[in-house]
Write a protein that binds this DNA or RNA. Structure first.
Lengths: 188, 188
DNA sequence: CGCGGTATCTTGTCAGTGTCAAGTTGTCCG
DNA sequence: CGGACAACTTGACACTGACAAGATACCGCG
């Protein structure tokens, strides 16, 4: 049995998870550079060097976050019917619902790209994406370029919304706003 | 007359431009967080606090870079015929040709969003983009959602390529690879 | 039960960083 | 020529990431 509630004493209980969550929260609020390891440690009530034990260094923490992100994305994509619109909407839902993960996942300069767990998670998400696109795109239009186009439009919409660049045209609910935009890729 | 060549003496000549270029180079190599103001100062041969005189702080430097980026993007978009494909290709050409600018422009957490020069440059790029899309999209399919779709697919392709996520499918020349992908938005 | 090994966390330290304040040098205009 | 201003330097401070060494709690094995 894992005792999460006891945050007292020398052992924290589940410091790794606590730090990951705190990092995600901090990144969501202030971006991938607006926080420090020491701040996360203070928030979790541990010493300034405690995070390093679990993640090695800052890049290790971000790599762990990205790994978790790719796993979450794969789950999200696998839980959706074989429909392009719904797959694209699921992609946008993931990006907006897990903003911190999404932002870190696509900034390789912050990560240890050679981490085996990260690569495994990337592969899982990649095949989920590829398979989803293969099933979702109408056979007469199926092609590598078409699948890239589908990925691009969903990714671009999510990135633009997260950056605030289209906030004036879209409003708060990015997921619902994505639907009519994505529809344009499959005819008019 | 401006003497750029004389980097000697108490006055540098054109330190502001030198720092901006060095920052763009550093970001291109190591990402938006893989460098320091003091490193740029050393590279330029000035004291560690010299950059602050021109930009205030790190956010000020990045804001100046983003401002320059929006101006360059507007120029790029304005120099292109009223054709959706060419507008999209120009967008991708800008993103890959000015990687550092592009990455900073869409990370508002790094910037001073209330900077008047930044906002002016944003507006100029925004109208250039809007106007280009308005002319480029066939009238029978023109709509706000269609314009958003066009922006999204170009932005998404550029972002995915820069992150290396589609390197295995695309190769080195992102601009040429973008063409067949973008074509999918206007029928098949 | 107890004891040794190990994972977890702490404490102390160091070079490097961003930012501020105050001083120095060069330029330009009246 | 003089003084105001811009450009840059010097010095300082709190903070950070990373490392080394030590302390504490848990866990298996006798």
């Amino acid at each position: 049995m894992i005792t999460i509630s006891s945050t007292r004493g020398y052992h924290h209980g589940d410091l790794r998870r606590t730090i990951l969550d705190a990092a995600a929260e901090a990144i969501t609020e202030s971006g991938p550079a607006g926080w420090s390891l020491r701040e996360l440690a203070r928030r979790a009530g541990v010493s300034h060097a405690a995070p390093a034990h679990h993640f090695g260094d800052k890049a290790g923490l971000l790599t762990a976050l990205a790994t978790e992100g790719f796993q979450l994305l794969a789950d999200e994509l696998n839980s959706v019917p074989d429909d392009f619109l719904e797959a694209g909407v699921a992609y946008v839902r993931f990006a907006t619902g897990h903003r911190a993960h999404f932002e870190v996942m696509f900034q390789p300069a912050l990560l240890r790209s050679d981490d085996p767990e990260l690569q495994a998670a990337e592969n899982r998400a990649s095949t989920a994406l590829e398979e989803g696109l293969r099933k979702a795109v109408p056979p007469e239009r199926a092609s590598g370029d078409m699948r890239l186009a589908a990925w691009s439009i969903a990714h671009g919409f999510a990135a633009l919304w997260l950056s605030g660049a289209i906030a004036d045209r879209v409003g708060e609910d990015a997921v619902e706003a994505a639907r009519p935009v994505l529809r344009n890729l499959l005819r008019g």
